[in-house]
Write a protein that binds this DNA or RNA. Sequence first.
DNA 1: TTCATATTCAACCATCTGGTTGACGATTGC
DNA 2: GCAATCGTCAACCAGATGGTTGAATATGAA
Lengths: 108, 108
Amino acid sequence: MTQRLDHVFAALADPTRRQILSMLLEDDMAVTDVAEPFVMSLAAISKHLAILANAGLITQEKRGRVKWCKLEPDAMKDASVWMQGFGQFEPVNLDAFEAFLAEQFPPD
Amino acid sequence: MTQRLDHVFAALADPTRRQILSMLLEDDMAVTDVAEPFVMSLAAISKHLAILANAGLITQEKRGRVKWCKLEPDAMKDASVWMQGFGQFEPVNLDAFEAFLAEQFPPD
DNA sequence: TTCATATTCAACCATCTGGTTGACGATTGC
DNA sequence: GCAATCGTCAACCAGATGGTTGAATATGAA
């Protein structure tokens, strides 16, 4: 798991890759379309996408000659949970939130 | 701000540095004490601490000949907020949560 | 003063990173 | 079939990263 965190945080450390993730938030995209707004080469973007895929932050599926890239936001979960462990910066009252949940979704 | 995210995520991408942060969660520590559980040299730990300080994740204060390292968990806030923006992994219905908040803390 | 402790600095090294270019394989459209 | 498009691969490059060692600096203790 520590290795998974390595990969996720390292992937997120690059602004190009963060921008790609933001783009994929709107919709799945082909590699060429991902590359379009950037000034760097297609090969460079292809590498960035491979790094994101290796971190589990996206998946890629080839249909015909087009490779579609899809955001996998769950991959950020472990990293997010790890960070929350330092949680002095929780934005809301979690006790109240849990009470709310218990009310909305009562246990069996 | 994108540069701040660069530094924070890059700092978190190394397991040694994450372990140091976890250690500092318990208490402030001197550089030598931080280095103690690791097999690498003191100079290497000193560099890791400088990277954490540059990212704002810790602060260092020299008292006498000892330099104390202190966790600054707020520095993770921006990164955490950025990640939450991908929030498909939120465990609950956010609309319902917002309704709950509006009820608990009505706007003026 | 002198010695020991705490930490950094400087030089060095191997490896990783992020980019380039050009060639290549696979698929589609005419 | 043939040309164009989609994407990756391979080789290369400059610079960053993570580690080492030995010397240097600064403070504290005897």
